[in-house]
Nucleic acid binder design. Structure first.
Lengths: 339, 339
DNA sequence: ATGAAAGCGCTAACAT
DNA sequence: ATGTTAGCGCTTTCAT
């Protein structure tokens, strides 16, 4: 059924014999190295073609001591944010003649760790982790073996580990100031995570609130039990005399939950409540009202991650931490309060 | 900075010398093969541990002539459907002691093809393609080199290629009969693709319509220009004397576009228009109204795909095409017409 | 039970 | 410009 599986694939040796040259001539020819006359090269290539020869990566890697492989570890395949970052990594990798191997962490730190070991065993020369959930100590351990770049915010700086992330402080400020400029004062921050990026957004929320609405104590809902936090926001809207008029959420998923709960409860968005998301994911344009959100330069982050990796491969030794500026995309989920 | 990169990693030889045994003894010990006394095995293992020895995959693969690698090629990373199928593949692969390497087609047939070649070059023993966009001839060519299973409907049966897909005819029937049972008669099918799965859903739509509403000519919008098709549905709703009361869409994305356009145009869902999606993706529960949709057994499809692959690896030669039954998940986007 | 030797397919250093 | 030789790290006979 699968003939190629039964009769072994041709080797340099087979090609050499068929072409009447030596193994090294074949090796040079297929790698486009110089040291051969144009005539012999063409001849060898055509024979190789005819035999269906493909050089064996394992043998090549073994003898050269390098694989040209870079691992990309995704926390969650199926997340469009991760897809876009990966696309950037892919583009940059193609330019650098590096091959990508994608691993899947399945939103589970233990699984992520296993997957990482498996990538290392495969012989990757470096690793990009998109949204690492690993403890600093694990990251440091990996960085001792191969260059490691994390796309996303680290809980703390880890020696030997580079990172590239969006500037959460700028993003959060854009979001909150957008709301205060519209005239909102009673703004809630709704968060579903205590991870670094979320914590920075939260801290900036407090800071911007103190700057612009000094009289009002900033309120934060979450990060445990997002559903309960959402319900509590709805409760405040219905029961309080001076209810919140806007919510800055930690990301679009949380925002979508909130908007859904509002519509279910008869709360109009943005009439009674303005909502801002974070990530500018594809759901923003699917929801009604369409979601105002903070857009991270995802693809550029991926590209930069790989470039940082290849610099490491080339010998850079000091750590690098890049912050890229996000932008606010205003849509219809935000408006002047009470309209 | 990265000591492991400077001082070369230990080899069998290093371990053998340190433990005072031969290379072959080390080889046997680390692979848990029999032929060693328990004492020496333990000794070797502890020395290996201490030196931080990890066997070199390339060398192993080279000598054994097999890699234990299986490639999974995703048309679109960042698609939750693909993620769930992949999760199934991963679970099954873990049981079979096979490692997964994920490749990314980036929704581009040419890129998919390149990625596939790169997986083959990596030495995968088999490939699972999730939602293949490749022409039959390309699939056949690949299947001649390694076992190939496609998760998703094939345009035509290809010799040597296995497939596993949801039963589109059953899914489409569930959706359309749900609508006719609610009392709908003027139902439109809205599609954005001419790929096999979509075509089967469309054909079934026509068939079920003829069965249940024989007096009415089934209408299909699309597959070109989904946005134009959506606008045309809205146009019919506003201008026709007997406008459609329900739409069966080809998938949730198209359904989301339609629902959004309806709300923008002041058409109430499901009051004026009931909408059914396909795939039961995560957006179903984010939208308001929440989307009634057809759920494919995604994870099970992935698991089955890998099991079929490993049967091929074990020698099965006849082609296999599995169809798994989907289920309808009723939510709030469908209701009795005109309410 | 253990060791020695051959070789997987390839490349690189060294002849010619 | 081309061929020869010696490994890369590992497994696998085949001796011992």
């Amino acid at each position: 059924m699968n003939p190629a599986q039964t009769s072994r694939p041709p080797t340099v040796h087979d090609v050499a014999r068929a072409a009447g040259v030596s193994k090294s001539a074949v090796s040079l020819a297929v790698r486009n190295q110089k040291g051969l006359s144009e005539a012999t090269r063409q001849h060898i290539l055509s024979v190789a073609q005819e035999l269906g020869y493909r050089s064996n990566v394992w043998a090549r890697s073994l003898v050269q001591g390098r694989s040209g492989l870079v691992g990309v570890l995704l926390q969650d395949l199926g997340n469009s944010y991760h897809r876009d970052v990966t696309a950037g990594v892919e583009d940059a990798a193609a330019e650098q003649d590096l091959r990508l191997v994608i691993g899947h962490g399945r939103r589970d730190a233990a699984k992520l760790r296993t997957e990482l070991d498996s990538l290392l065993a495969l012989g990757v020369e470096g690793v990009v982790i998109v949204s690492s959930w690993l403890p600093p100590q694990a990251l440091e351990e990996i960085a001792r073996r191969v260059p490691l770049v994390v796309a996303g915010r680290l809980p703390e700086l880890v020696s030997g580990v580079d990172s590239v992330a969006n500037h959460d402080e700028i993003g959060a400020r854009l979001a909150v100031e957008h709301l205060t400029e519209l005239g909102h004062e009673r703004i809630i921050h709704l968060t579903g995570s205590a991870r670094p990026a979320a914590m920075h957004r939260q801290a900036t929320f407090r800071e911007v609130m103190r700057e612009h609405v000094p009289g009002i104590e900033p309120r934060v809902e979450g990060p445990q039990r997002v559903d309960a936090a959402v319900r509590h926001v709805i409760f405040q809207l219905r029961e309080e005399k001076a209810p919140p008029t806007a919510v800055f959420t930690q990301n679009d998923r949380v925002a979508a939950d909130l908007v859904g709960a509002c519509l279910d409860a008869g709360v109009s968005v943005p009439g009674q409540l303005s909502v801002v998301g974070y990530d500018n994911s594809s759901i923003c344009r699917m929801l009604r009202p369409q979601l105002t959100s903070v857009d991270q330069p995802r693809q550029q982050m991926g590209r930069m991650a790989l470039e940082m990796l290849s610099q490491r491969l080339a010998g850079r030794s000091e750590d690098l931490h890049e912050r890229l500026s996000p932008q606010l995309v205003v849509r219809s989920s935000t408006g002047v309060p009470g309209t």
